[in-house]
């Protein structure tokens, strides 16, 4: 088997709070390859953003601590690297784009200069050459008249344009891994469609691996090759996009899909709703973290945390029900 480009092994991340250490991410594992898109899907508090920030080791600045686990990038453990070493990787081999394109850009510099900055920092090029690269990159992300746009300031561009600039900035050094944390959440649907399309194109052109963080099952289904569903800091289901969307197994994944208006419910009828609220990290339930909201919960779910179970060809699910055949029939019925 091929060595994965980026591999997260049993990553746990905690935050210091008054109540003690809160685990935002609990033993998450991921393998990413070139030219593929990986999606982390989950609601707020699921730990998806914390996972991505940990890969960049930006979590240190947000008051988080990597408690255990490894993050291998080209066989080197990022967790053991110092911040100084990470600075050399960030924005070069590992790039990241965030939700708010406007706040990711510095308002007092032209967008061209901001993109060129990254080139000069990491690739030892002169100002002139760097600016040329910046314009080339702006062209690649589909900005018309890039020579003109490069000399403009962020406030002169629309939200969609800004997100394109942010993407150009992230990609100008041709990173091997791009982490996109809710890159389209702040954008309108029509612009979102443009940006998702762009990401898909660029992934093929630059042969990079994308780690996309989103709360939108629809977005995940559109762009992902591999999907990991997270809930309250743990992975609950993992598989190819085909496996997860066509044969969702975990009651949470299923619930998420069914909650989407128009997925299965008729107009005006009550929507399927997962009962209860997302638990806070300070008060995580015992056993399976989803059990208080799960309609199929058994005694065992209340007591013991489920172990990952392979349903075949990499479709992993963390649910006790997957272990017994009869249970899986009843889930099938619910489906």
């Amino acid at each position: 088997m091929k060595v994965p480009l980026l591999e997260i092994r049993d990553l746990s991340v905690g935050f210091q709070a008054e109540q003690g250490i809160l685990k935002a991410v609990d033993r998450v594992s991921l393998k990413m390859e070139e030219g593929k898109t990986f999606c982390l899907v989950g609601e707020s508090g699921s730990g998806k953003s914390v996972t991505s920030l940990s890969v960049m080791r930006l979590i240190d600045y947000d008051g988080g601590d990597i408690l255990s686990g490894e993050i291998f990038f080209h066989g080197e453990d990022l967790v053991r690297k110092s911040q100084e070493e990470m600075i050399k990787l960030r924005g070069y081999k590992l790039a990241m784009i965030f939700q708010e394109p406007m706040s990711a850009l510095n308002p007092v510099f032209t967008v061209g200069d901001q993109i060129a900055e990254a080139v000069m920092l990491h690739q030892n090029k002169g100002k002139k050459e760097a600016c040329q690269d910046a314009i080339e990159m702006l062209r690649l992300v589909g900005i018309p008249a890039p020579e003109v746009r490069a000399r403009q300031y962020p406030h002169e561009l629309s939200g969609g344009m800004c997100q394109r600039v942010v993407i150009a900035m992230a990609l100008v050094c041709k990173p091997e891994v791009l982490i996109a944390d809710e890159p389209t959440t702040a954008l309108d649907v029509t612009v979102q469609a443009q940006i998702l399309d762009l990401l898909r194109q660029l992934k093929a052109e630059l042969n990079m691996a994308i780690l996309l963080i989103t709360h939108d099952m629809g977005v995940a289904a559109e762009v992902a090759d591999q999907i990991t569903v997270m809930y309250a800091g743990v992975m609950v289901e993992e598989g190819t996009v085909e496996q997860v969307f066509s044969h969702p197994y975990h009651p949470y994944t299923l619930g998420l899909l069914k909650s989407i208006p128009g997925y299965e419910s008729k107009r005006g009828m009550d929507l399927y709703a997962i009962p209860g609220n997302i638990p806070s990290l300070a008060q995580l339930p015992q056993g399976c973290r989803f059990h208080p909201r799960c309609v199929l919960a058994q005694e065992k779910c209340r007591l013991e945390e489920p172990v990952p179970h392979d349903l075949g060809s990499g479709h992993m699910v963390k649910c006790w029900l997957s272990e017994s055949a009869e249970m899986s029939e009843s889930t099938a019925e619910k489906r």
Binding site: Q19, A24, S44, G45, S49, E182, H215
Partner: peptide
Amino acid sequence: MSGIPLGESPLAGNSLGGGNPGPESAPQ
């Protein structure tokens, strides 16, 4: 909706839906 557990939101969000503990029994 980012999942960063900073600020108050995820920590303060109290357990489950209807059957919530009253303010007296709600810790933290």
